[in-house]
Design a protein around this nucleic acid. Sequence first.
DNA 1: GCCTGCCCGGCAAGAGGTGGCAACACCTTG
DNA 2: CAAGGTGTTGCCACCTCTTGCCGGGCAGGC
Lengths: 345, 345
Amino acid sequence: MGETGEIGETGTSHARPTIYDVARVAGVAPSTVSRAFSRPGRVNAETAERIRRVAHELGYRTSPIGRGLPDGRTALLAIVVADLTNPFFFEIIRSAEKTAIDSGYTLLVVDAHESGGAERRALERTLPLVEGVVLATSRLSDSAIRAVAKQRPTVVMNRVVTDVPSVITDNAQGMRRAVEHLAGLGHTRLTYLAGPEASWADGMRWRAFREATQELGLRARRLGPFAPTLAGGLSAAQALTTHSATATVAYNDLVAIGAMRGLTRLGVDIPREVSVVGFDNIFGSDFCTPPLTTVAAPLRHFGTFAVQRLLNQLRNPSPTLSPALSVPALLPAKLVERGSTARRG
Amino acid sequence: MGETGEIGETGTSHARPTIYDVARVAGVAPSTVSRAFSRPGRVNAETAERIRRVAHELGYRTSPIGRGLPDGRTALLAIVVADLTNPFFFEIIRSAEKTAIDSGYTLLVVDAHESGGAERRALERTLPLVEGVVLATSRLSDSAIRAVAKQRPTVVMNRVVTDVPSVITDNAQGMRRAVEHLAGLGHTRLTYLAGPEASWADGMRWRAFREATQELGLRARRLGPFAPTLAGGLSAAQALTTHSATATVAYNDLVAIGAMRGLTRLGVDIPREVSVVGFDNIFGSDFCTPPLTTVAAPLRHFGTFAVQRLLNQLRNPSPTLSPALSVPALLPAKLVERGSTARRG
DNA sequence: GCCTGCCCGGCAAGAGGTGGCAACACCTTG
DNA sequence: CAAGGTGTTGCCACCTCTTGCCGGGCAGGC
């Protein structure tokens, strides 16, 4: 348990001692051993101490499988991410993991490979194991998500599904900041590089883009959809050059970075000729050339928040969604100004 | 099961039907239901068909927890990676996952956060759940790894630990190719940018570097250690400029890319003034400017191979390591020549 | 001194499956 | 027609841990 805790004790083979072994050695009933661990206070302090000592000597660890049997408690949560290799999820996963661990849960990371089918299959395998699940940027249909939520407490991220708790970035606010920033630099014709059609966030961002440009009296255009990857951004660059855009906001940072690469390759100077704004402030967006101006999503809070909501549901299970949970948690976004935007040349 | 398989059927609450429910409706004993699923052929074809139909109607899925009870089979494997955000692991994770799924296992991805302590704690939580584990680039001590291997079938990756099966790149061969390549371009003084001291792979690479340079009559120097990250590479760039190197081989691609960024920032032209070679051929090494020349590790085969070795151990459990497993699997490396190396200027 | 009540530990019943063993039906075969 | 074989299914014990219930022992109060 402490800093010196060994991972493996003496054990010869791959067999682990059970409460029965501990009970026998300690001279008590198995149930007492069980209580000594799961019901602190329910058992005499001295007895408990003796049991703990014996258990440690034997290298006993309570088996998650046995424990989970009676009431289904596995102390496992899952987070399903659209793409494990997308830096957008890095901070989310880490913060979610930390929050889960701090509450005594283990977080399973599940990769959906940007595919609804793979996501469904993965959930099929994982769902029976876990007590709750976070769906981060799911490609599932609303009804499929509700079906999941019926089986296990669920929180969706970056999306709103009726009757399912959710955590989202304030896309509208973030997009408005981006558009205002570009307007302030003198740009009047803005282009939005769209993400996947199935993406809820893309819809929100495009809508906010249109509204913000309209209010500020700017010309708005939409290109896409593009895959939410570097490759997607690369092809977006191609499309961009055929139109004379001076400023563009991309669905996300990956698309933005891909577009910058593509434009540079085509001889377009960024930001002198074209300003580019991304979305999400992923790991790496400050390393690229030029460093990307982007709408920063509170990635760290995202994971934490989502898991906390999940834990809340686990702690007070109620058949109907409590009012506090039925309204999506809106996390604020801010604009990070870096080198990819400049005054209209 | 088929393409139309729903995730959730009718279920009102978070409760799932059991074999008992299926048995009651189908008019058979629970054990027959069990056998219908786990022992094909052991039960009459018609009966099995009826059971399957009823099970489907009821939305029954066999519970992994209950199934694992008698013999500890959870159908879960784990892969522990040093750093989930390191692209080096992307392909490895994906291929490992695929191999696991194809054999009916689910793969848990565990992040060790580049820290031995975190790795130990994560293993402590995970190990009791899984049937076997792949340690990818572990920061644990040899004895800690052997302790893990004592508890569960284990395969280590990128490292050799006595008595534990392993899968490694042919570092020596790869490094030799890199050095020959640079020598062929006229470079005579080479620098190696070292990775973490605790890294087994770093030791191998440095040794191979020294040997190869010596045989070819080149001057070799070592700088570091640096963190195996972009940031580590950035600081390496600093160190590089103080020495007049014309060619450098980095511990891995991340360090190489970071070093290129740092050098470029310092006004050094790559590859005209300095040639840079990376290691691993990670996702993204072809996107950076200039595209990185690197020693390609067979990442995809890595994951597949490791999991296959694990599955072998699971299928024929033997107290002593079979001879075939006790020798590390050497996966060949090749050099991918891209834009970051050039004839000595 | 006895009753009450509390503390603590034990017994046994699950929880959802698996698998050994045996029963049973039915079909061959002598 | 009886004996033996085969194929299918049911019964029950078991895996590991939790938990409701019960009873023994002890202390305190009258």
